[in-house]
Design a protein around this nucleic acid. Structure first.
Lengths: 328, 328
DNA sequence: CGGGGGTGTGTGAACGTGCACACCGTGGCA
DNA sequence: TGCCACGGTGTGCACGTTCACACACCCCCG
């Protein structure tokens, strides 16, 4: 900027004004713009951040990166959604991978180093050190997915897992199924536990704990494992609520091998409405998880804190329409 | 830092030395560390970047984000691989989504603003404005996947698509197949075009252009479309090279519906060795794409430029072992 | 003719750090 | 005794910006 000022014979202050707006005469502006082109000047945002004390950037942290980045079909859509609204607000979204203890330490430094003005955190555990640091720094942030019971200062956006699970289970049961089971995944997460709660609520007195297979993950392999277990325990099973579409796909594979027709012998429903849902044969009835909207809302909540509009923003629960296809 | 100095009664210079190493007496170090804890001091990395003229961060740009982020099974593994080596070198990897013209402009500013010391660029087109800016800024960078014919200053890491395609096609043909076809996807990309070239080279005189179905994308739906086309053109087809595992999965669905056994009636091979490959029934023979290694190498190349070791680093082509499973 | 308000410009002080340099005391050595 | 190397410390400058302030000028109005 100093060079530009020297080349144009006008002071730094005026150069700053043509860049950021302010009273500048036409000839001064022209001279400076010529000098900028001549010198090949590009503003140094790092220096601007230093004095402005903000970076116009928001971090996007996916904790549990292995499973998320490689398996979760929603994470990409959430990112895209968040980027959409941050982009309109002229904020740069930067995603950070947290994959090891070394990453945790470095990302912590990064977050506290003034690189970002806020953060969107996907599937944090409350005991996570990064969460602690963010709360401590008072960095504007939003959780996605898991309502953390600690840190009430940080809002979250998510879906009503229990309600959605209850709704789709009720609908499945209403198709005349008599032995309705569930492949319950990831019970150590809120989302997993809530889906089981909803399932249970839907069946009420008809709930049979024997017809719940517990599996560790939301993935295909878990679906295979869970369905085998259910078939063994109750060969007459005729309805299955799978905790995710991937789980449902694995379950359908097992049913096909066992010679059971879907939905004729067994009705099956999933959760997520991910790309799995349309790839199965027949296509899957499922709970639509509005991943893009989740991302958009999370970004919105961060921006609201950045603009300091009123007190702590409230949490957001997004509606999850049921998509009824052919599998039940 | 000033506050720490004041609280401990020792100068800023010494505070800097305890943080960055240098001659410091034990008592001074203790006093300063106590003051750091008391004040709750966290170093401001933005200020450090300003004076050091580097950020210890490397950008990870995925152009074509829609398809990549949501569909490409490799992108996550590449990111993880890159992050691994950057992490060891104590560099922060930041991924940037480029999803619109507005994004392009903002990311350009971000890259030239001193936020990153280097960049890893996935599937750039040579005419891409971001590529131009990076070359112009002389920002250390590495391309992943597509050897760009322009900008010789920027190295790339990729795989030998043509060679790999030729090798697996030869192996497929060697199983005694008489009518070997290909579902060729994404011919507008180097990777897609090269895979077709390799297929053609493998068959030599036996190559029959009628048995090549061209589809737009590397995805499941394209596989469905391509396989239908091939079956129509040549009902006696008994071997298929699909341009990706997802394409192969789509093709197998069609074959199953048509009552053709895999591999008894039709042998089929894919490309990528993504999670698709083990989910199909039977599991897919395919070309292993070492996504994680690609990421690692790309990061390595950027770091080498950062350390300014010798002249421009050479390009890297990684080996792609064939994984032979049951589909052919 | 003097004063006030708006427009346009220059200047100095931050922002939080790293680094070069200067400085001080001590001990070893000629 | 003088010199030097070395551990240990303080100070000023630089990095590239923004912002507050001061100043100059012009025009209009009382």
């Amino acid at each position: 900027m100093h060079d530009v000022a020297a080349a144009s014979g006008i002071s730094r202050g005026t150069v700053s004004r043509v860049l950021n707006g302010g009273y500048v005469s036409a000839e001064a502006r022209a001279a400076i713009e010529a000098a900028i082109a001549e010198v090949g000047y590009v503003p140094n945002t790092a220096a601007r951040n230093l004095v402005m004390r903000r970076s116009q950037a928001v971090g996007f942290l996916a904790l549990e990166p292995h499973s998320l980045l490689l398996e979760d079909p929603n994470i990409g859509a959430i990112m895209l959604g968040a980027n959409e609204v941050l982009s309109v607000a002229d904020h740069q979204m930067v995603s950070l991978v947290v994959d090891s203890a070394r990453d945790t330490e470095r990302v912590t430094r990064y977050l506290s180093g003034g690189f970002v003005d806020g953060a969107i955190i996907v599937s944090a555990r409350t005991h996570d050190p990064i969460t602690r640091v963010i709360a401590q720094l008072k960095l504007p942030a939003t959780f996605v997915g898991h309502p953390p019971d600690l840190h009430h200062s940080i809002p979250f956006v998510g879906i009503d897992n229990a309600g959605s699970a209850q709704a789709i289970t009720e609908r499945l049961a209403a198709t005349g199924r008599r032995h309705v089971g569930m492949i319950a995944a990831a019970l150590d997460r809120d989302s997993g536990a809530d889906r089981l709660t909803g399932f249970r609520a839907a069946l009420g007195a008809r709930f049979d704990p024997r017809l719940v297979a517990e599996v560790p993950l939301y993935d295909y392999a878990s679906g295979v494992k869970g369905m085998r277990e259910l078939l063994e325990r109750e060969p007459g099973i005729d309805g299955v609520f799978a905790a995710s579409d991937a789980v449902a796909a694995g379950a359908m594979e097992v049913l096909r091998d066992a010679g059971r027709g879907v939905p004729s012998d067994v009705g099956i429903v999933g959760f997520d409405d991910s790309s799995w849902a349309t790839r199965t044969q027949p296509p899957l009835s499922t709970v639509h998880q509005p991943a893009r909207e989740i991302g958009r809302n999370a970004a919105e909540l961060v921006l609201r804190q950045l603009r300091d509009e009123g007190p702590a923003p409230a949490n957001v629960l997004l509606p999850t329409p049921i998509v009824w296809r052919a599998s039940a």
